[in-house]
Amino acid sequence: MTRNFATWPIILLLTVLSLPLFIMYLFLLVDTFSNTPPGSLLPNEFTLEHWRFLIDPTITGDIWKPTLTTFLFAASMMVIVVSVSATAGYALSRLALPFRRFVLSGIMVMHAFPSVTLIIGVFLVLQFAGLYNSLIGVILVKASLMLPFGIWIMKGFYDAVPWEIEMAGVQDGASRFTVWRRIILPQVKPGLLSLALFAFIDGWSEYMLPRILAPSSDFEVLSMYLNTVSDPNSSTYNFNIFKSVGLFYTLPVLALFVLFQNRLMNIFGGGTKG
């Protein structure tokens, strides 16, 4: 490969710009495994005591139950978002629906709304349906707020599948549903996978909706748990434990990003196959 400009100035610039972030994350990691004497910048001992919350529920309360709840929350949201987007995106891309343009622009507008502005309406609906203060209610709200994004993305992926492939399937004697399931769906698999990841990560990091829509319920997600740990008035307040819990909370997201980063970028490619 020939280079027509030197790369080192760019690398240098990027390094300088990202250094503050990098140092912050480094100290976050270092602090969870060490103690630093007051007034000093550098740690003086290695310890695992800040990670004891994993096995000792007396320090900050049991962490595994919120972890499981968060996992359930994120996973069910992922299932809803993926299944609805996969079908709705296909319908909007391929079927001659009445009011198709209207629905499409409606989805676009909904995507533009910040979820906070809808919160009062959502609250009323949940209250009316008897789902206020329940995990199911929060999952439904969170999933439906993500649907416009998901449907729009999936429509883009379906649009990129050649029309002839679908017609060939119909010509071969398969019903529209069989064609969708056996021929079209495999073509949009990259889109489905990245959408699933996005939905999972989005659900995993959600804080506000459970907080507002289920304030007094008996379930707790990790973000709320983290908030309790960080309360400076609590007797258990310990900055390094807070950091450790925070790191624990971020780990699955980091792992997913590392494992699937190529797939995640795929979603912004407009549905071309990677």
Binding site: P162, M167, A168, V170, S175, P186, Q187
Partner: peptide, 20 residues
Amino acid sequence: LPSQKRNVGVVFQNYALYPH
């Protein structure tokens, strides 16, 4: 009759093979 019930074989310009 819909396409499925006509027993017609079609070769499309871009072949339209199923890539997967």
